[in-house]
Design a protein around this nucleic acid. Structure first.
Length: 595
RNA sequence: GGGGGCGUAGCUCAGCUUGGUUAGAGCACUCGACUGUCACUCGAGAGGUCGCGGGUUCGAGCCCCGUCGCUCCCGCCA
């Protein structure tokens, strides 16, 4: 624990985990929890645990009274004790290389049991190879689970990442400004958590899905550079990497362009990864959205392996093959990946790939391989010598194609590509490929209704050049929006915003909120602000929980959040949500449905 | 909203395939022994609403239906 202040108090002198050979001979008092105990009759060992770690405390007849030894033998694990004694270097044969404090022990002369513990519902100390208790029990007895050194380490890392964020942004002139938790329901996006108003019957606040509009208003106010470690709330179904309440590093700045924000993002992510003990490049790779979709079928491609998607439409066009002909005739393309060495995969293994492609929406997966110099597979017979030459499939390789419109083939090939990389073991441990994807489209179309939706959000600024070039074809407009991606995972994203009230109004119109009164009712406080003189501005937001999860090596968000919710959005420890007395509801003007 | 997995002692699990005396193991716990252990060891003991409800059966931890909880995934998450 270098560079930290002394954690000595009036009750204790040291942290258990901090004792080293240099402390030998020191008289110390430690406070902590009994992690484990070993009673050998004439001598008793307790492993004492505190925030700093573990140290072995020994109670022997040569230095401790019979009463103290008896008390040590009787104390239960997880009891809180105060021990006083002398730090002693252990003899060579009794040193323990697996403990940080393994070269020393505390020869205790006194033991005070400050708080005896009942037998813990779930074990804190675990044997080697012993499994964790069921997650339900870990969450229900969170006060015990959080005593585990692994979870303590994760939350300590979380603290350090928060401090790095604050320091990095503060040093660059960013102001940490707070925004309301009780805010206005948003008509777009995720479902809101609603909070009833007592003083205004039938009216509701919402918990923020993000501080988006507030941070733009800070720009309108002239604060120029803002950040917040912001708690956000979304009432949607959960996943291992999705909690109903989560934390974003939220950033906004004025008089900036895309490059300003991206440079800041690179620097901040670099600082966070460095704090986590890893390297990050000074500058990240860049790729347009169009390029990412074309080559990887994904807007957050994993660049740790190749298997890039290529367009083989020209090659297939002359072939007399019904499936590809009809896809091409319908305006689709034939795209695919080449998997080296995969010609040896069994029919069943390739069928599994096809099942993944179908699961992602494709009608099927066309397969072709080269074995002993010859093309093989159900579609080989359609190949002309010219097509075979154009494909130039190498010996032992398997080619996999999807013949469809891009919006179908992209997710299918993305899924297949990931699985092939997995099978071939192409992901090298420790490989990190940071990537910035930019030039996202402004709108996407609902496949059913055909209505336009905002890909990022409605406050994103479309590219001026695209609006000028295709004034009547908004679906062709690109947005000044960008994502930061690592190994196929989205770390964060943002955009340059619209700072012109007229353009913003047009955006709402295109998104189906044409009625001016309706716009004012929903977004009036933003539009009003934009009309009051708004600087060009933009920003970015990072998923802080996910970043902490990646840097701590955890596999679930629940392991980097002190008191998380279950996948049913329940807090098992506190017991939320819960029924409330009828009179409370009455005061809030809420009548529950019968049943 | 849909699909998969799991639910047996405080904890981790076996038993379920093929229903059949009293449901087992390891750890933890209690008692006893032990002066250098570090997942101490050894002996003894206690500990069960087999998630819950219903059904089939002479008989259900095991089969069937429902339900609850946890979890993973799809939908959803601007």
């Amino acid at each position: 624990m270098t560079l930290t202040p002394s954690l000595a108090t009036s009750l204790r002198t040291h942290l258990a985990g901090s004792l080293r050979v240099a402390d030998a001979g020191s008289r110390v008092t430690l406070g902590g929890w009994v992690h484990r105990s070993r009673n050998l009759g004439g001598i008793v060992f307790l492993d004492l645990r505190d925030r700093g770690g573990l140290v072995q405390v020994s109670f022997g007849t040569d230095w401790a009274s019979a009463e103290v030894i008896a008390a040590a033998a009787a104390v239960g694990v997880e009891s809180v004790v105060l021990v006083e004694g002398t730090v002693v270097e252990r003899s060579a044969e009794t040193k323990n290389a697996e403990m940080g404090t393994g070269e020393v022990e505390l020869r205790a002369t006194s033991l005070k049991v400050l708080s005896p513990a009942v037998t813990p519902a779930i074990p804190v100390a675990r044997g080697k190879g012993e499994k964790l208790p069921a997650e339900e029990l870990r969450l229900r007895h969170r006060y015990l689970d959080l005593r585990r050194p692994e979870l303590q380490a994760a939350l300590v890392l979380r603290h350090r990442l928060l401090q790095v964020t604050r320091r990095y942004l503060s040093e660059r002139g960013y102001l940490e400004l707070e925004t309301p938790i009780l805010t206005k329901p948003t008509p777009e996006g995720a479902r809101d958590y609603l909070v009833p108003s007592r003083v205004h019957p039938g009216e509701f606040y919402a918990l923020p899905q993000s501080p988006q509009i507030y941070k733009q208003l800070f720009m309108v106010c002239g604060f120029d550079r803002y950040f917040q470690i912001a708690r956000c709330f979304r009432d949607e179904d959960l996943r291992a990497d999705r909690q109903p309440e989560f934390t974003q590093i939220d950033i906004e700045a004025s008089f900036i362009g895309q490059e300003d924000i991206l440079a800041l993002a690179e620097g901040l992510i670099g600082a966070l990864w460095k704090e986590g003990g890893y390297d990050a490049p000074e500058h990240f790779e860049r790729m347009t959205y169009a390029d990412a979709m074309e080559r990887y079928g994904s807007d957050r491609p994993d660049l740790r392996y190749g298997l890039e998607i290529r367009d083989h439409s020209a090659l297939f066009r002359p072939l007399e093959f019904g499936i590809t002909q009809s896809a091409l005739a319908a305006g689709g393309r034939v795209r695919g990946i080449v998997v080296p060495g995969a010609a040896s995969w069994s029919r069943k293994q390739v069928d599994e790939l096809e099942a993944l492609a179908k699961g992602a929406g494709a009608g099927g997966l066309l397969r072709l391989k080269r074995v002993d110099g010859k093309l093989d597979g159900p579609i080989a017979k359609f190949f002309t010598p010219e097509a075979e030459a154009a494909l130039a499939l190498e010996e032992g390789a398997l080619a996999l194609f999807v013949a469809a419109a891009d919006h179908v083939s992209n997710p299918a090939l993305d899924r297949v590509r990931q699985e092939c990389a997995q099978r071939l073991g192409l992901v090298r441990e420790g490989d990190r490929r940071f990537l910035i994807v930019y030039d996202f489209p402004m709108f996407d179309r609902d496949p059913v209704t055909g209505a336009l939706g905002a890909v990022h959000h409605p406050f994103t600024s479309p590219k001026a050049e695209d609006m000028a070039a295709y004034p009547d074809e908004p679906h062709r407009w690109r947005a000044t929006a960008y994502d930061v991606v690592l190994n196929g995972l989205e770390l964060g994203g943002g955009s340059i915003r619209t700072h012109d009230a007229a353009v913003q109004s047009r955006m709402f119109e295109l998104l189906g909120i044409g009625d001016v009164a309706e716009q004012e009712r929903r977004f009036g406080f933003l539009l009003e602000g934009l009309r009051a003189g708004a600087p060009p501005h933009g920003g970015i937001a990072f998923g802080f929980d996910r970043i902490t999860m990646l840097l701590s090596g955890a596999t679930s968000l629940r392991d980097v959040i002190a008191f998380p919710k279950t996948t049913a959005a329940r807090a098992l420890f506190e017991g939320a949500p819960t029924l409330v007395p009828a009179e409370d509801l009455k005061e809030l003007h809420i009548r529950p449905e019968a049943g």
